[in-house]
Design a protein around this nucleic acid. Structure first.
Length: 204
DNA sequence: TTCAGGATGTACT
DNA sequence: GTACATCCTGAAC
């Protein structure tokens, strides 16, 4: 098993967002292991990006995590009832991160489906299957990711990223998966940053 | 299938 | 008090 390490998160945030596509997100909760393949990401770069919580060097209790070491998790609550998962990029002291917007379960799908819908994966409706983990709030619900997982350092076992997981029959995927590029979602307040093409996704 | 509206809590003004 | 890196429901088509 090869985890994504510090050097991965030290690269340019936009590159990191692209290269996270196809990587495995591994979550262990209540003794259950759940693995998902990442399908959608967005880049947030504090220095130049009005959509980033830490734009212009903004430092508050919430944004403090964005200045942490590369690879640190950043989980925040949005709209009162959902959480969003990010991983911090760049050197310590530089505020930038990649938002994980979507993924598909590849191991432990029943555990994910129970957290998401309260039923096993085989009992999901067509509608539920279609809307399983295709959004940042849904993804956190399915993996039981809350703010207690905010600011977890690289190297923890509760939540990490990996290139491959041979113990679960999951091989490493190509480094340069073909991906789509577009504008980010839900940042209508961000002025010129609205149009930054920093959202990336793969078909599968 | 698309769409409007509401839910809900925390951070920050 | 306001805004928010969202999602679900129900109604109309």
């Amino acid at each position: 098993m090869a985890r994504l390490e510090r050097d991965f998160f030290l690269q340019d945030t936009v590159s990191a967002a692209q290269k996270l596509l196809g990587r495995y997100l591994v979550r262990t909760d209540g003794g259950e292991v759940m693995v998902c393949r990442i399908t959608e990401t967005e880049a947030y770069v504090g220095a130049v990006d009005k959509a980033c919580h830490a734009y212009g060097g903004r430092r508050t209790k919430r944004t403090e995590t964005l200045y942490a070491a590369p690879g640190t998790s950043y989980v925040y609550m949005i709209y009162g009832m959902y959480n969003c998962l990010n991983f911090v990029t760049g050197p310590e002291g530089v505020a930038s991160a990649v938002l994980i917007r979507g993924c598909v379960p590849v191991y432990g799908a029943d555990a994910v489906a129970r957290r998401r819908f309260g039923v096993d994966a085989s009992e999901m409706s067509a509608y539920q299957r279609k809307n399983f983990m295709n959004g940042p709030g849904k993804l956190c619900r399915g993996l039981s990711i809350g703010r207690e997982l905010n600011a977890l350092p690289l190297g923890n076992d509760a939540l990490y990223l990996a290139y491959d997981l041979p113990e679960f029959g999951l091989e490493r995927r190509p480094a340069a998966l073909p991906f789509h590029t577009g504008k980010r979602i839900g940042i209508d307040y961000a002025e010129e940053a609205i149009d930054f093409p920093w959202r990336f996704w793969v078909d599968e």
